[in-house]
Simulated scan of single mutants.
Amino acid sequence: MILAEKIQRQNFSRSSSHLALVFAQTMQTGQISFSQWYELMTAPLEDTLSPEAEDAITRLIYGVRHGLIKVI
């Protein structure tokens, strides 16, 4: 397996604990990396999400759209 594929699979896991960690870090720092942002934007297209996960993603999108969170 190519190294890039291994890294991509690790970075784009959509477990609820991973989403909670990204949400907490983003809320603390007010910043989200582009790769994490891309992951959140594509999550609803690839997986079915729980209502809690959908709510967290919606809140992050709202924060970015209104300038409360910066994509770096």
Score class of each variant (00 low, 15 high):
42 T>R: 14
19 L>H: 01
35 S>C: 14
40 L>W: 08
2 I>T: 15
41 M>T: 12
10 Q>F: 12
47 D>A: 07
50 S>R: 01
21 L>W: 13
72 I>G: 14
63 G>W: 03
44 P>I: 03
25 Q>E: 11
48 T>H: 11
24 A>Q: 03
10 Q>T: 13
3 L>I: 14
4 A>I: 07
47 D>I: 06
62 Y>R: 13
62 Y>K: 10
44 P>F: 07
1 M>G: 12
14 R>G: 13
47 D>Q: 02
5 E>W: 04
4 A>K: 05
19 L>A: 06
22 V>W: 07
27 M>C: 10
32 I>T: 02
23 F>W: 03
61 I>K: 09
63 G>C: 06
57 I>L: 07
15 S>T: 14
22 V>M: 11
14 R>K: 11
54 E>F: 00
36 Q>K: 13
51 P>C: 00
39 E>M: 13
34 F>S: 15
20 A>C: 01
44 P>Q: 08
37 W>S: 05
72 I>F: 11
28 Q>P: 02
20 A>R: 03
32 I>A: 00
21 L>Y: 10
55 D>H: 06
45 L>I: 07
61 I>T: 04
6 K>N: 03
22 V>K: 09
58 T>H: 14
7 I>K: 13
27 M>A: 04
3 L>F: 11
49 L>Y: 04
58 T>D: 12
70 K>Y: 04
26 T>C: 00
44 P>K: 07
71 V>Q: 06
66 H>Q: 10
26 T>D: 09
32 I>L: 06
36 Q>I: 09
27 M>P: 01
23 F>D: 05
52 E>S: 09
29 T>L: 00
60 L>N: 07
60 L>Y: 00
15 S>G: 12
46 E>Q: 07
15 S>W: 02
18 H>E: 13
22 V>S: 04
56 A>E: 10
7 I>P: 07
60 L>E: 05
15 S>N: 05
27 M>R: 02
17 S>M: 05
16 S>E: 14
42 T>W: 08
21 L>R: 10
55 D>L: 08
39 E>Y: 05
30 G>W: 03
33 S>Y: 04
36 Q>C: 06
61 I>L: 08
50 S>D: 02
67 G>N: 02
22 V>T: 14
16 S>T: 12
11 N>Y: 09
30 G>M: 02
31 Q>C: 13
65 R>S: 15
56 A>I: 01
69 I>R: 01
54 E>L: 10
5 E>N: 05
47 D>Y: 08
25 Q>W: 03
36 Q>G: 09
28 Q>N: 15
49 L>K: 01
3 L>D: 06
14 R>M: 12
70 K>F: 01
70 K>L: 11
60 L>V: 09
43 A>C: 00
33 S>N: 01
38 Y>V: 15
13 S>R: 15
51 P>D: 07
1 M>Y: 01
2 I>Q: 14
24 A>E: 08
19 L>R: 06
68 L>T: 09
28 Q>M: 11
46 E>L: 04
66 H>A: 08
22 V>Q: 06
9 R>N: 11
27 M>G: 05
34 F>C: 10
33 S>I: 04
61 I>D: 05
63 G>K: 01
72 I>D: 15
67 G>Y: 06
27 M>D: 14
4 A>Q: 12
65 R>W: 03
46 E>W: 02
30 G>I: 04
10 Q>Y: 13
40 L>P: 02
6 K>A: 12
